[in-house]
Design a protein around this nucleic acid. Structure first.
Lengths: 348, 348
DNA sequence: ATACATGCTGGAAGCGTTTCCATATCATGA
DNA sequence: TCATGATATGGAAACGCTTCCAGCATGTAT
């Protein structure tokens, strides 16, 4: 018994190929009896339609592409999880493009993979695309949504990183801190990834507004991992003399790294050092980390739902000059300021 | 300008469709001049072949499916990263099936998605399949490789979890510990996931061989996360009276949770409590964690390479009754015992 | 010069569906 | 009874490629 085709089903059900196709895909204009016959025959033969043939004929792929810069960091794996769940439930496949930090891989993904007319839609996470890249993507007439990255011309889901960074910093300032350090993302590694700079700008804005100096040696660059931030924070906290009283880390993972470093020096959090993060990492609970909670998984799920709607609404054959995208909406995803106990008034 | 088809390229190059196809896919029997003409025309038109049409015609999908139970935990995201990189470099797509712990999702993935003749191969991570499920998978004549899970009939890449768990336990015993606790995986959550039980068996075997009692209250169940193990370990270490002197955690993440819990009680690691993990998580370095290093990323990459080879070697049309798989090989992936400084002789 | 192998080429037959369109069936109202 | 519309059906034309096959040049050995 090889793989059964729709022809086999039709023969067995005593129907035409056309009717079987309609019956199985739930289309109208099929009598109840025929539908049942077709379904029974399909079941008995273990028939499942070939995606390729079906896609080729219908122009529908049942497949959305997801481009991420990494899969290890909390934020990205959470988004992937959200997207994945929603898609799977809707019967869609998820094609994952983990471009990493290798530019040539980024290039091939953008130029070869995405363009190959195989995807119904694309979700790009924290990816900054050039104008020509966006144009190219839009040219294949697929809806795109960007998460956490600026994608001019495409719909985006994002949080207001600058404002939230300011809020976090203001929380420390409000407690009386003036000697505040900031652990930010790596400057060079990934030019695609503008987020660290945005959060850093929010930090600086809040400091300046409060009239506190931003000391360059207290703005340190880590890689968004616990271990990376741990090393940075050790340097930061090494000299008992000129030590900050508070740290704002651009991610929870880095905040945790800072807490671990503080513990190494016998510093108590929050009595000796306040630490605030940003993200909502599950591990934050263990450390009592004050943070700004963003539901990354929910953001992924929302992106997937938005695309599924667009796809369902959209014309069957995207090649027929459909407008690039209904309207590029820019949604701000809700966040929550989560005060736990890693922040307090500065030591006397 | 819509999407250019091969016909357009052929017209522009003044060649036939057939020749263009051969030229662009690097086939033989094309003159250098024709090849150049075809490539130039394709470039100018921005032509990229439709995967669906190409797959339908050739029977090749350039796509492998990856089934994982989760994407958050270190092991899985590392494997995904390894697979992803290798596949991307080879020009293959990765379709990710994150089945999670929801059985209905597992069911639909196994029964609908994987069977749809869309994949050239399947990689299943830590997935225990029933015989009928394996049979069904093999029936679609696609090579399968399992990573870290028992997949009878398919090739597998694995580490010898029982032996390594024994080794880890013996390391503690060798230092003089007799009061050893074990943090294992959740018993109920995921029936697919036999690994915790295997490691637990290794632990018990070592204890028995040494003549040490396995105290049931010192075998605690966590969920493979830092935070989950942290909670368990707090309970474990709460009573100063009957406290273990060493902990073997079934994963590095759980070992780190135990270290954090120990610190909460003012216990020094390793002077007061020895902790050993298993995996090779990057974060282990921060904690000086003694562990057994397994290169999860490398395992993913190896699985992908094995499949690519099989695909390349295999018959063009798998439907033609090719044997399920050349020979189901069972490879043990090398590991490394990494002694850092979270283990020492027990306190006096 | 003839015979033959060799290298390129284009026509056309798939690949397995979906969907258009023309036809056939059936009930309904005049 | 006959026209009329609604509903079901199957034939056949896409969908956009790959690849088989036959044909036509060349080049080489007789």
């Amino acid at each position: 018994m090889g793989l059964a085709g729709i022809k086999d089903v039709a023969d067995r059900a005593g129907l035409s190929i056309a009717t079987v196709s309609r019956a199985l895909s739930g289309k109208a204009n099929v009598s109840a009896k025929s539908r049942q016959l077709a379904k029974a025959a399909a079941d008995e033969l273990g028939f499942v339609p070939s995606y390729h043939a079906s896609s080729l004929a219908s122009g529908r792929n049942h497949n959305v592409g997801l481009v991420v810069p990494s899969i290890h960091r909390w934020y990205f794996s959470s988004v992937v999880e959200g997207v994945s769940g929603t898609l799977l439930d809707a019967g869609y496949d998820l094609t994952l493009y983990n471009v990493g930090d290798r530019p040539e891989r980024r290039h091939s993904v953008l130029n070869d993979f995405l363009v190959r007319k195989r995807l119904d839609a694309v979700i790009a996470v924290a990816l900054v695309l050039s104008e020509s890249e966006i144009k190219q993507l839009l040219a294949i007439h697929r809806p795109i949504v960007g998460i956490g990255g600026a994608l001019a011309g495409a719909s985006t889901i994002r949080i207001d990183d600058a404002r939230l960074a300011r809020t976090a910093t203001e929380h420390l300032i409000g407690l009386g801190h003036t000697r505040i350090a900031h652990i930010t993302g790596d400057a060079e590694l990934n030019q695609d990834f503008k987020l660290p700079g945005i959060r850093r700008a929010g930090f600086e804005a809040a400091m300046e507004a409060a009239g506190h100096a931003v000391r360059p040696e207290w703005v340190v660059f880590a890689d968004f991992t616990i271990q990376g931030a741990y090393v940075c924070a050790r340097n930061l906290l090494a000299s008992a003399a000129g030590r900050p009283t508070a740290v704002f880390a651009a991610s929870d993972e880095m905040a945790i790294g800072a807490i671990l470093a503080a513990r190494d020096f016998g510093l108590r959090v929050p009595q000796d050092l306040s630490v605030i993060g940003m993200d909502g990492h599950e591990l934050g609970e263990v450390f009592g980390l004050t943070t700004i909670n963003q539901d990354a998984r929910g953001q992924g799920a929302l992106a997937a739902r938005m695309l599924l709607e667009t796809i369902d609404a959209g014309a069957r054959r995207p090649a027929k000059g459909t407008p690039p995208s209904a309207a590029a909406t820019d949604r701000e995803y809700p966040t929550e300021f989560l005060v736990r106990n890693s922040t307090a008034v500065p030591p006397a």
